[in-house]
């Protein structure tokens, strides 16, 4: 009985819903479009298996990559090597060495007002994260870790400045020493800012470069100011 009713209603409503069969995408329609497979674009080192190579080669290759990026920072020319394959090893090494050198002489000294290891570490990473978020918010087209990588690698001139400062401080701490340190730190601060700007500015909308550069400037300024005022206990 129910079946008969359903059938009758179905016949009556048939024309109404006749077009509905076309709505569904059936599997008869072929998928169109081009799927181009880049043939021959495999570079030889992609096929190169790294499974059975000596550990020394692996480490050397990574070290070479880090070293190459150091060179890029020291000669900041327009290059995307720092952006393309980012890594955080270089920033980690730079940050740790800078923090170690900035660590006041005696940790248990009561009047040790010098920056602690953790403080330097936090300033560098927190500052880099803030700059990155700022550039993302301003409409930058750069990924989070690329920006962190660039900002971290661009601490390199400042680490060099810190090394020089410690050497100068070994010689003595008079007015001449301060002037030498001031010049070195200022030069390296300018270098860091210019290098990071050269790498990061391309990813920003052209009318907003000043807004992105300001926090970078502030970030390196604080670090270089910490380096300048550092005096071993």
């Amino acid at each position: 009985m129910a079946a008969a009713e359903g059938g009758g209603a179905g016949a009556a409503a048939g024309p109404l819903f006749a077009g509905l069969a076309d709505v569904s995408i059936s599997e008869d329609i072929p998928v169109e479009g081009e799927i181009s497979v880049p043939v021959g674009s495999h570079s030889p080192d992609e096929d190169y298996s790294t499974l059975d190579e000596p550990v020394k080669d692996t480490i050397m290759r990574d070290l070479k990559a880090v070293g190459k990026k150091f060179v890029h920072v020291m000669y900041p020319k327009k290059s995307s090597a720092l952006l393309r394959d980012w890594d955080l090893w270089g920033p980690l090494v730079l940050c740790v060495s800078l923090a170690l050198m900035l660590q006041g002489g005696s940790a248990d000294s009561k009047e040790d007002g010098g920056p602690q290891f953790a403080e330097v570490f936090v300033i560098i990473w927190f500052g880099a994260v803030v700059i990155t978020l700022n550039s993302k918010l301003l409409g930058g087209t750069i990924s989070f870790f690329q920006s962190l990588c660039v900002l971290g690698y661009c601490v390199l001139p400042l680490t060099v400045a810190m090394l020089v400062c410690r050497l100068v401080l070994l010689a003595g701490s008079g007015t001449v020493s301060f002037i030498v340190r001031l010049i070195v730190v200022m030069a390296m601060f300018g270098w860091s800012t210019l290098a990071s700007t050269a790498f990061l500015a391309d990813s920003q909308p052209p009318n907003r470069k000043a807004l992105v550069v300001y926090p970078i400037f502030l970030f390196y300024f604080v670090i270089s100011w910490m380096i300048l005022t550092f005096t071993p206990q």
């Binding site: 009713e5 359903g6 016949a11 409503a13 819903f17």
Partner: peptide, 9 residues
């Protein structure tokens, strides 16, 4: 099945 007609739709 995509079919024709159906009252209880």
């Amino acid at each position: 099945d995509n079919m024709q007609g159906g009252g209880s739709a």
